[in-house]
Write a protein that binds this DNA or RNA. Structure first.
Lengths: 207, 207
DNA sequence: GTAGGGAAACCGACGAGCCAGTCGGTTTAT
DNA sequence: ATAAACCGACTGGCTCGTCGGTTTCCCTAC
């Protein structure tokens, strides 16, 4: 009973890993269920035993990624006392997560948008969640008087958009360099946009 | 001869309009050539007489849009003497263009990303072109000492990304309001990010 | 410790639908 | 008459999801 459940969970996991791989390689539309099944060393029927549809696999992958990112970012922020340091930690965590998982980043940032109407609503929510997270923290910082008042709603969206563009460009590049190298400049830019001016070297990016 | 060419050109135009409509309604993958043909009041063979493939139609649409936007933005900038005013004009033109053509904006910002690997490269170039345009103008402004030095390369990308996110959210929203209302806040945000602080009312948005 | 029953997990051929692009033939304009 | 423009049935290929059947696993009874 216990072992059966465990096996089922691990099969499910394996299918998700394989699906991620195939989706990342082919894109959502061109990923065939047969190929996902092969990659997971099972059959199409086996895949359909664990997931009701192709869409469901993709959605599950999307949720997992969103939760992972948001969880990591919030944990990183919680661990830092200083407000600017909180921000740095979150930005760095997101950039490093994407840097370490380019196919996944591609899936998340590129394929998901164009995969079909069914996914747009969910993507919109995910974007809004992240932008909202930023917005709330900015509100906090404004309330404490650390930075001058500003439209935090648009700032949240704009920050998210800026980060999104930088990572997306890296994802699509033929010869992507090290994404993390873009962190200092992006950090400076974002901080300045809300009225905090800091010399770039004030925090090391050491790993 | 003259009339024949003119007819051919106008047929081509009509096919592009119809294709834009169908692509915007269904998305690239789900848009059938038969439907495009019907919408253009012609047949599939007729469409294939004017375009070699489905991809080619989409690419033509993409180019047209990119040229239109870039042309309008540059013209708007050229017409303004003041540096900040140039920026305002360009931003406003882009926002208004998208605001007036939501389906087209959807196609350009959303569908194009997931339409297939063939389009990613072109999209990357288009993004880079716009970011580069911004970057060059920022360089100019920095050189004149109007704003403090900064990494204009990342700033170009970030500006583009911020604008992109705001417009994309509007494109995907169930109940999109007036995009142009987001202009003042976005403008303030972007200007502040490069070290220019201006009260929001310093330029009216009147149409 | 092992037989056997039942359920969970798995398999893969098949049905059914979809659609880009082709091509031989037809219309229209000059 | 000639060539550009147009038509639409058809081909070839693809793939999601189904379903009847098979295997593997676990648990109980003896």
């Amino acid at each position: 009973m216990r072992t059966e459940q465990a096996r089922s969970v691990s099969r499910r996991q394996k299918i998700m890993e394989s699906a991620l791989d195939v989706f990342a390689r082919r894109g959502y539309r061109d990923a065939a269920m047969d190929e996902i099944a092969d990659a997971a060393e099972t059959s199409k029927g086996g895949v359909y035993f664990h997931f009701p549809s192709k869409q469901a696999i993709f959605l599950a992958l999307l949720e997992r990624m969103a939760n992972l990112l948001q969880g990591r970012a919030e944990a990183a922020m919680a661990a830092e006392p200083d407000l600017v340091a909180k921000f740095d930690a979150a930005l760095l965590v997101v950039i490093r997560t994407f840097a370490a998982h380019r196919p996944l980043a591609r899936l998340f940032l590129v394929e998901a948008l164009g995969a079909g109407r069914e996914f747009n609503q969910r993507m919109l929510e995910i974007h809004a969640d992240f932008a909202g997270l930023i917005e709330r923290h900015l509100d906090e910082v404004v309330a404490l008087g650390v930075i001058p008042p500003l439209d935090t709603h648009i700032a949240g969206k704009a920050w998210f958009g800026a980060l999104n563009e930088v990572v997306t460009a890296w994802v699509l590049a033929d010869d992507p360099g090290d994404l993390e190298q873009q962190y200092p400049a992006l950090r400076t830019f974002l901080l300045r946009s809300v009225g905090i001016t800091i010399s770039e070297g004030s925090r090391e990016v050491g790993g």
